[in-house]
């Protein structure tokens, strides 16, 4: 496991009008690791993701990607850095087939003409690389796929582009037990292939099953980012619901800097 983060955010502020949704957020994602981003409804997880992917501009703060300070002002910027997002609603076109969806907006062409064989081959290789064997034909419409298969296609679409960082917003929220296991396995495999993976989830079992680190957001503040092995289920739940848990999280009284630094982790986002 690498010690230097692929993506590091420092001091991110984001407001929608008078509402401050993100407050001085620090966050890091490491190559080869799954970083779980947890927090209650409305904590700001999706907003943070959209800031990273360039959909929302940030008010303050800095991005460091691969050791370089960068600015991301559009989804295109994020994509060119190798950041791909699998949104919660997946954003697939039901009337297009798997290959067409995976290459949507970035079709391979021969001059003017779509290069279907190349696209189909690349799609097959990507799915095979992810050891996906559950789709019958690459030419079937996405609408005929199960929830887990659709999720698989969305994830495959994200890793097709030599991406370095893949962010998944609640990929298992709508799935049954078997398909959830299937998708989590896929998530794990992405990290094992060397990618940095950020997984947003409300399901603590999923989080503990696949993640290497856990980052907890509480009302727009990053209250802790710790290794999964060094925290318990109950502590994470406390962080999510109360913003603090023992030494971790927000200060007890304002004024005292009760920084919840996790051991052996310099990127903890303890904020007062």
């Amino acid at each position: 496991m690498s010690a230097t983060p692929l993506l590091e955010l420092r001091g991110i502020d984001k407001s929608f009008g008078p509402v401050q949704v993100l407050r001085d957020v620090a966050f890091a994602a490491y190559p080869g690791e799954v970083t779980a981003l947890v927090g209650d409804n409305g904590a700001g997880k999706s907003t943070l993701v959209k800031c990273i992917s360039g959909i929302y501009p940030i008010d303050a703060g800095e991005f460091v990607f691969d050791g370089q300070p960068v600015t991301i002002s559009s989804p295109r910027d994020a994509a060119s850095l190798g950041i791909e997002v699998v949104y919660q609603d997946l954003a697939l076109c039901d009337n297009l087939d798997i290959v067409q969806n995976m290459f949507l907006g970035r079709e391979k062409r021969n001059g003017l003409v779509l290069d279907e064989p190349t696209m189909e081959q690349m799609a097959a290789e990507t799915l095979a690389g992810l050891s996906v064997r559950t789709v019958k034909s690459l030419r079937q419409h996405v609408s005929s796929l199960s929830g887990g298969q659709r999720q698989t296609v969305a994830i495959a679409k994200a890793v097709l582009w030599n991406s370095k960082l893949v962010i998944l917003d609640e990929p298992t929220a709508a799935l049954g037990v078997a398909q959830t296991a299937q998708v989590l396995e896929l998530v794990r495999r992405l990290a094992d292939n060397g990618l940095a993976v950020v997984l947003i989830s409300h399901n603590m079992n999923d989080v503990f099953a696949v993640s290497d680190r856990i980052a907890a957001l509480y009302l727009g503040q990053m209250v802790a980012q710790v290794k999964t092995t060094e925290i318990t289920h109950a502590q994470v739940v406390e962080l999510i619901t109360a913003g603090r848990s023992g030494e971790l999280g927000l200060a007890v009284d304002p004024g005292v800097n009760g920084n919840g630094a996790a051991p052996a982790d310099s990127t903890t986002g303890g904020v007062s």
Partner: peptide
């Protein structure tokens, strides 16, 4: 056979997905 045509289908199928695909 062109990406323009593909994008027509995409916009008709899921406008938001097409937008996010750039």
């Amino acid at each position: 056979r062109t990406s323009y045509g593909r994008h027509i289908y995409a916009v008709g199928g899921n406008r938001e997905a097409a937008r996010r695909a750039g």
